[in-house]
């Protein structure tokens, strides 16, 4: 293929994946609200409620407060949406090839994951409201909190893959291509379960959901970071949350549950990709149900100082224990190989 052809196909693929990400992300939010409603013995909104909300927000007036910094205030939501879409381009969706998958790895994804949050922080500071400023500070504290356990998970998995002799252990396609559960022994499985728990606890904080939504806390900060946003800008932030929900689900699936339907059942190529995509979506819904919906219905909000303790002490220790178990497992494996 010529260079122009390659670039053209990447752009086309990018547009398709982005559209898919927006639609699937919004449906995920709808499913989340519906399931939460059922768990509270309610009927709940229709599945397409997030779409209705977005359409409504688009007809509303878009207010820029007087003491805001307009260019930063208006560009923050755009950056949030675009950066969350960019992360999606690096993550494998079922057996489909991700458009930029070979150009970036898990480390890059970890960095990119901070950008939507940083955009929200910038937007919060730019809105010139005390509530938004407090929210932005809390968001930064939360980020400092959850980055460390998340890094432990990423390092742990990649290191174990490397120890098992997988080439390019940080590349998402090689992580998804070598299901980690098959590589490790019994000790490693316990370690992996610990790391899985850590990732599950990091997810609600990435998505600012209860119990880690101190930065948006509706009852104390009146919406926190988003307090001054209305109309189109608020719609963009909801879109970014939707895409991020899909991204976090897809990341957990790619790291811990990468199996594809087509590797178990023989299918013609076209059917296999569709089936894999549907299977992938089912896995994402399951992951999201357990990490977001179940937790947010069952728990109350943590205070901001508790958030840091929970991540730096409790879950960092659990993550390190998981890492140690993985190392012990690898050492035992090598020892057994030598004997």
């Amino acid at each position: 293929m010529t260079l122009a052809g390659t670039i053209g196909s990447i752009i086309l693929w990018t547009v398709l994946v982005s559209l898919f990400g927006l639609v699937a992300g919004l449906f995920l939010l709808g499913i989340d609200r519906k399931l939460a409603a059922h768990m509270q013995a309610r009927i709940g909104p229709p599945l397409r409620q997030p779409f209705i909300d977005i359409r409504k927000l688009l007809v509303k007036e878009n207010i820029v407060p007087e003491n805001a910094i307009p260019w930063l205030f208006n560009s923050a939501p755009v950056i949030a949406v675009v950066s969350s879409l960019v992360i999606l381009l690096y993550i494998p969706l079922g057996s489909l090839i991700s458009p930029l998958g070979m150009y970036g790895d898990l480390i890059l994804v970890m960095y990119l994951l901070t950008i939507p949050a940083l955009a929200m922080v910038a937007g919060g500071f730019a809105s010139g409201s005390p509530y938004a400023t407090v929210g932005a500070q809390r968001e930064m504290v939360t980020m400092i909190g959850y980055e460390f356990p998340l890094a432990i998970v990423v390092i742990g998995i990649a290191w174990r893959l490397w120890a098992a002799g997988v080439a390019h252990p940080f590349l998402l396609s090689s992580i998804a291509g070598n299901p980690i559960w098959g590589i490790v022994g019994p000790l490693g499985i316990i370690g992996l379960i610990l790391l899985l728990i850590v990732l599950a606890v990091v997810t609600p904080a990435e998505l600012s959901r209860i119990p880690f939504d101190t930065q948006e806390a509706e009852t104390e900060l009146a919406g926190g970071l988003l307090v001054e946003y209305s109309g189109r800008n608020l719609a963009l932030f909801s879109l970014s949350t939707a895409v991020k929900t899909l991204v976090m689900g897809a990341l957990a699936v790619a790291i811990f549950f990468p199996w594809n339907l087509s590797s178990f059942v023989a299918m013609p190529a076209g059917v296999a990709q569709v089936a894999d995509l549907l299977f992938f979506l089912a896995k994402v819904v399951l992951v999201m149900f357990i990490t977001v919906t179940l937790v947010r219905v069952g728990m109350a909000r943590f205070r901001i100082n508790q958030v840091v303790t929970v991540y730096w002490v409790h879950f960092a220790l659990i993550g390190l224990a998981g890492l140690l178990l993985l190392m012990a497992d690898s050492a035992l494996g090598t020892a057994a190989g030598v004997l």
Binding site: P45, Q49, I52, D53, I63, Y131, E218, T219, L221, A222, G223, L226, V227, E228, Y229, S230, L234
Partner: peptide
């Protein structure tokens, strides 16, 4: 689709 929000802007 009715929900309570914390900020008049929303």
């Amino acid at each position: 689709g009715i929900k309570l929000v914390g900020s008049p802007r929303h």
